[in-house]
Amino acid sequence: MKVMDRIVFYQKLGFLPEDMEQLAISRQRLLLQEVNGYIDDMTQAETAERAYQGLREQLEKYMKKQQLAGISAAQAKYESCYDMLYCQLESARHVYEKYQVMGIGEKIFFDTMKCFPRFMDECQAQKGIRYFDRGWWTYRQTSMRLFRIGVLEYEMAEANREEVSGSEVRYGHETGQRRYSTTVRLHIPSDADLSPAAVDASIQEAVLFFRKYYPRYGHAEYTCHSWLLAPALKRLLREDSRILAFQRRFDIGEVDEGSCSYLQWIFQASEDVPLIDLPEQTSLQRTAKNYLLAGGRIGDAYGIMRIASGINNAVD
Rank of each mutant, 00 (worst) to 15 (best):
Y78K: 12
I129H: 12
K77A: 08
H94P: 00
F110T: 02
Q53Y: 12
Q100R: 15
I149R: 10
S91R: 00
C123T: 09
C81D: 14
R140P: 00
Q141R: 05
I149C: 08
R50D: 14
R148D: 08
K77R: 13
T138F: 02
Q67N: 09
Q66W: 11
G70L: 06
G103K: 08
M84Q: 12
Y96H: 14
R134C: 07
Q53P: 00
Y86Q: 01
A157V: 03
S91N: 06
E57K: 12
T142I: 08
L152N: 03
S80Y: 06
G103N: 02
C123M: 04
Q126E: 13
D83G: 03
K65P: 00
F147Q: 03
I104G: 06
Y62H: 09
K98H: 12
E155M: 11
C123D: 00
Q100C: 11
E79R: 11
L89M: 13
E60M: 07
E155G: 02
R50Q: 14
L89H: 09
T138R: 00
F110Y: 15
Q100K: 15
A69W: 05
D83R: 03
G54W: 03
F119M: 14
Q58S: 08
L68N: 15
M156H: 07
F110S: 02
A157C: 08
R134S: 09
